[in-house]
Amino acid sequence: MNFNGFVLPLLIIITGFVVGLLFEIIIFKKIREKSLETDWDGFKVVTKSLRGLSIFSFTIAGIYIALGYMDLGAANLANIHKILTIILILLITWAVAILTSGFVNIYTRRAEGVLPSTSFFGNISKLIVVFIGLMVVIQFLGLSITPMLTAFGIGGIALALALNDTFSNMFAGLNVITSKEMKIGDYIMLETGEEGYVQDITWRNTTIKAITNNTIIVPNSKIASHIITNYHQDQKEMLVKLNVGVSYESDLKKVEMVTVDVAKEVTEKLTGADDSVEPYIRYNEFNDFSINFTVFLSVTEFIEQYKLKHEFIKKLHERYNQEGIVIPFPIRTVYMKNELE
């Protein structure tokens, strides 16, 4: 085994890999850092699509050059060239797919009101580009596409049955997006109890960020079939209800005046409370041990209600103690009749 026949080609391939690695680490890293400083999102998409491509490209170039120094025979060289060409086509296809998906996502974010800002359309465009790339590879191999399409048509029914859940989620996601009943950033609650901010709607599932900072993954078919409360639809402002009970000895006019006064004080000072809506109360029940009523306050969005309730309960408890208004403990009076024999 001579130097030119094995060692030199190996060194050329290793050199190609090292050059690609250095290009990725030094030059491309500076390009990525520069992209983070610019306001144009397209620059970031381009750098993301080209990430890692230089290593493969320089390595493949090294292999091409090394083949010129190797005596493998015409047939073997032709097969290797064909394999390298296919790899190169697939690499370019993947880069173009990421590039297309990124620009589609940018457009959907900017075209608010026309297309919802989700990754759904970006993922679909990526699949289309990958499909086209595979068709190019098949054509390059000299295979006839027509019989394959016919075979796909015959096997389409079996494929549809096998991927029933996948297609169900995909079309459900498309329905959710086009109906515009839910979009990125909305705070929603499912009838099963899950709630949080909508982060993304993909071709398979919807991602929800709970207030506990946990991520909830819900299949799109469940989103389409369940009852959903959207707290950001039309408007974010909403009324918050808080139930309170006072003793039967209380002066109900005084209770109403004090409670509304505390509610106004809290909503005026607290960020997130909507002071444009006057707080009010409504008595609603003679309970076993208390007269119950509901306090209605307004917040700018759903998540702000927790802070409002927290501050209001503290202030109300303090004020009731000052005014001598009693919030009774649960009690029950039992009368026993003595029977004389």
Rank of each mutant, 00 (worst) to 15 (best):
K269C: 09
T206R: 02
G42P: 03
G324V: 00
A111T: 05
V240M: 11
G193H: 13
H226P: 01
K307C: 01
T212S: 15
V295H: 02
I325T: 00
S49E: 10
A74N: 13
H81I: 04
L127P: 00
V46E: 02
T47S: 06
N287I: 11
L163Y: 04
Y283Q: 04
R319D: 01
E278N: 11
G20S: 14
V136C: 04
M70C: 07
K30S: 07
H310Y: 10
S276N: 14
I188L: 06
G42N: 08
F289I: 08
A158T: 15
M257V: 02
I291P: 00
I138H: 04
E191H: 04
M182I: 15
P9M: 09
F286Y: 11
V260S: 04
I14H: 13
A172R: 01
W203L: 04
N230W: 04
T207P: 04
F121L: 13
R110N: 15
S298F: 04
G193C: 08
T259Q: 01
G142V: 13
L159F: 15
S225Q: 13
S117A: 14
Y280K: 09
G193V: 13
L127M: 03
I92V: 11
G324A: 01
L88I: 03
P9K: 09
L50G: 10
P328T: 08
N105S: 06
N220P: 05
H317K: 12
N76M: 05
D251N: 15
R51G: 06
M189N: 14
I27N: 06
I217Q: 08
L161A: 12
G324T: 00
N230S: 07
I201R: 07
N321Y: 03
I98F: 02
W40M: 09
N292H: 06
V260T: 12
L22K: 11
I327G: 00
G153A: 06
T85P: 00
T202I: 03
R110G: 14
L297D: 00
S119G: 10
I86Y: 10
T271H: 08
F58W: 13
T206P: 01
P9H: 10
F293E: 02
S117Q: 07
S101R: 07
I228T: 07
L316R: 00
M70R: 08
R110S: 12
V218R: 05
V266A: 03
D71H: 08
